[in-house]
Amino acid sequence: MEAVGPPPAPTAVAPRHWRRRFPLTAFLVRRIAAGLVLLLATSAFIFFATQILPGNVAQVVLGRNATPQSVASLEAKLGLDEPVVTRYVDWLGNAVTGDFGDSAVQLGQGAKSAPVASELGEPLRNSLILAGITVLLMIPLSFLLGVYAATRAGKPGDHITSLTSLVIGAFPEFVFGTLLILVFFSLLNVLPPVALVPPGTSPLAEPEALVLPILTLLGVTLAAGIRQVRGGMIDVLESNFVALAEINGLPRRRILWRYALRNALPASIQIIAQNILYLLGGIIIVESVFAYPGVGTFLVEAVNTRDVTAVEAVSLILAAIYISINILADFLVVVLVPKLRTRL
């Protein structure tokens, strides 16, 4: 037997350390730890950027005509008389336990206590429902249409799919949403122009209200997803190993699934994760377009009234979701790419 040469791969000797024995778990732990550090940095940025820059929160909230006394009293209520760093540490400590502080605006209007956390519950749930349904539709559709377009690259089916997604994907969300309203409300009058969900009811009880927001979000994110999945799939279809499989006469179906799609999967997952992340931004606008009572509308309202505590709360939650999705996508990619997995 010929000397096979040293395999670059790990040897058969069982390493003792758990990191070696469970490399995937170790990777996940490492990524989560890094994510937490990033979240910490993010929280500091959110806190300082919203509060410390010019002006005084209490003054801004109460307006120019406020008396110095009322400003001072609001400052005391918000704890603004303490040093910045102390306030940040307190805020972060409370946020970890789910207490995001009191709404500055409502305190300024005379409320005794107005915990942001309790007001956030319902918008958060509404937004999750909206985003969840969109994602559930987006993932399979991105795949199906992207792969479909790639396998018929250059043919009419591809041109139609690609051009449509190019055009729809180009629109700003509010423009696409508005155009949908013009078509389905002004022109056809089959769907409501706003997605009003009365407080205390679930949006699922008002499915009509959800249709246009979902269509808008889907239009904008799906378009990008299809185009990129298609591109990734074409790259793989043009790779040497696919060509070799064809030349050596493997069945078309096997090549498509096990050679092309399987290797296009990791890139597609990254693309879809990107689009879910994009959705987080898009949802802010889309909710505003349809006056849908979710975190997006809540956030825009808070920015408009300079309700700093509310902005901070929503920002922190969105940033945490953003970071989590990134970690999940990285993890899936590592699981799916043997080269990455075996080299952990």
Partner: peptide, 24 residues
């Protein structure tokens, strides 16, 4: 000629590093 692929003829490519399916 596609009927001959892998039947009468088979092919060994130039660059083995990119010729094998990385996930197989």
């Amino acid at each position: 000629l596609a009927a001959l692929r892998g039947e009468a003829l088979s092919y060994v490519p130039q660059d083995p590093g990119t010729a094998l399916n990385p996930s197989l």
